[in-house]
Structure formats: structure tokens, C-alpha cells
Design a protein around this nucleic acid. Structure first.
Lengths: 157, 157
DNA sequence: ACTATACCATCCAGAATAGATCATTGTCAG
DNA sequence: CTGACAATGATCTATTCTGGATGGTATAGT
């Protein structure tokens, strides 16, 4: 959250939703409701400042406080040896002896589409490179390629 | 849960814990407390039968009912186009412009170890092949290799 | 008999989840 | 201009999950 808000300077939960969908959501899944509750918590903790728009919907806009910026920086610059957590229903079914053929076919479709989406994204930002997001995206691409290969092998086997 | 219980015929939550750690936990993360609450739910729903050991600890043992076996079969044989969900703190930090070098080093250590663990596992079951688990394991291996390559590139760049 | 240690189970407060629902704004046909 | 319908945007609820603490029970060695 802090990172996202910092990127755009200031944001409403709804705007955050767009940002999440546009990138980060791919390797950190979260729930839209969280975009409303989490900033509240952060505000209480003093990491963000909440202001309400005056007109119409009176939406809440959040921006970082100094404490927030500091906490973000501290978090980012602390390396982690934590491994990724995965939740893959398809693999689970495979583990329990699902018929590989139809499963692989379904997964192929889904993963190929995801891959296209990533490549699309990569092309869009292609020349103007915000390094972090781009590097993360590359990880996504490589792994989707891997998945495609994997399920392909199972499909034709 | 149903799948695990079926594999071993009958199990206590604690035994399930071992099974989860030994494989499935790698692509379906869950909490040990769930191993106690979930079977209760399943029992209420009629998918498993609960019996208590008579001596000592009077542990609960669960085994599938016919309904449970049926539900499991139905679930397994239904292909899914659901994509895996990922939660990768390291990638998140990278996205937010973490210094790649130390992050990559930390991740390399962790992923290399995971890879070794997988390969170890693969060697153990090497000749007696329970197909499902083995295939799933292979996915794990390929992806860990991919991660190692990925972070390696970032580390030496 | 004693105590250290593994084994096993449960509990708790807070947070996340899925999805429904509610409210406001925009838009377009008539 | 007006109502209807879609798109936006926000909130609520019940249930489940999470992480960790805690608390029992068995076992083996001294």
C-alpha cells in the first residue's frame, strides 16, 4: 500500500485498485475490500494522511506521511529470504491423480492468455523503463512461459 | 484434505501435518490449525467419519465416507482454468525499486536450498512413481530452477 | 522418581476472504 | 429534460484464516 501510494503521490482506494490490477496484483494477490480497510489502519498508525474530497462522493484520498515514507524505505531496503507462496489448484488436482489431458488443456488456455497480457504490458512500457516494475514483470513472463511449456508437455504426452 | 486422507486411508490431524509438509504444502500453503478445524467441518458435512482412539491421547482419526470419496472424485475430475496465486515478498520489494544485489543474493540462497530439497525428494521416490505427486514435484523443480536463474541474473548484473 | 524433550491439540485476537449490497455519477434514448 | 440503465465507487457481513501462544501428554534417559 505504502509503495503504491508513494508511486502516484496520492490516491483513493479505487485508484489503488487500478494500480494493483495493472501490475502488483500478479505477484501479490489481494482483495479489493482490503484497499479500503488497510489505508484506514495505516492512517491510524500514522503512516498515511487521510483527506476527504469536498464535492460529490467525498472520497478519501491518502498520501504518505514522513513516517510512512520512512517505513516504506525501511521495508524496501531490507532484503528477504522468504520464499514465494503458491496456491495452484491445478497442481493440486494433478497431485491427486487428475486426468492430465483435460486439465493441461484448460491450464494452457489460461496461461497462454496471461502470458500474452504480460507481453502486452512489457511492450507498452517498453522504452520508458521504470526499472522495478519492469524487472518484476520479466519474472512473470518467464514463469508463464515455464507454465506453458509444462502444461504443453502434459497435454501432448 | 479429502485427497490426503484418501491417500493414507485414515489419519489424525497430526499425521496430515506431516503429509502436507512432505509435498502438498509447496503449492498449497496452509496453516497447521486448519488441519484440526477443517476435518471437523468435513465431518459435520458428512464427508469424513471421525473416530477417537481409545487409549492415551484419544486422538481423532478421520477416514473418508462414501460421500467424501465421491466429492473428492468429482473435484479431481473437474478441470480448472484457475490460475495460480502467487505471493512473493521479494518480487514486491523489487517492484518498489529495492536494491537488486542484496535481495537477489538472499533469494538465491533460499531458492537454491528449496531446489535441493525438491531434487532430494525426487531422488527418493525416483523408481517407485506415484504419478501425480511426481508430476507436481517436477513443476516445482522447474520453477525453482527458473527462480535461481532469475535471481542469479539480477545478482551478477 | 525427575526432568527434558518431543509430540499433539486447542485457543485467541485480529485480519483476510468472497461476495452481496448500497450509493453516487454518467449517459443516452425518447 | 427525464427517466432508465450502466458504470463507478464504497461499505458490510459471515465465515474462515493467520500467526502465534499456550497447554496438555507421552517417552526416554538419568
Amino acid at each position: 500500500m505504502l509503495g503504491l501510494i508513494e508511486r502516484v503521490g496520492e490516491a483513493t482506494p479505487y485508484e489503488l485498485k487500478g494500480l494493483v490490477a495493472a501490475g502488483i496484483g500478479n505477484f501479490w494477490s489481494l482483495q479489493h475490500a482490503q484497499l479500503y480497510t488497510e489505508p484506514e489502519r495505516l492512517a491510524r498508525a500514522g503512516y498515511v494522511e487521510e483527506t476527504r474530497e469536498r464535492g460529490g462522493r467525498r472520497r478519501k484520498r491518502y498520501k504518505l506521511t514522513d513516517a510512512g515514507r520512512e517505513a516504506l524505505l525501511a521495508w524496501v531496503s531490507e532484503p528477504t529470504n522468504e520464499l514465494p507462496e503458491l496456491r495452484d489448484v491445478a497442481l493440486l488436482k494433478l497431485f491427486f491423480d487428475a486426468d492430465a489431458q483435460p486439465l493441461a488443456d484448460a491450464q494452457l488456455v489460461a496461461h497462454r492468455e496471461k502470458l500474452r497480457e504480460y507481453e502486452q504490458l512489457a511492450r507498452q512500457t517498453g522504452d520508458d523503463p521504470p526499472l522495478g516494475p519492469l524487472t518484476a514483470l520479466q519474472a512473470g513472463i518467464m514463469h508463464e512461459q515455464e507454465w506453458v511449456r509444462y502444461w504443453q508437455r502434459l497435454s501432448t504426452a
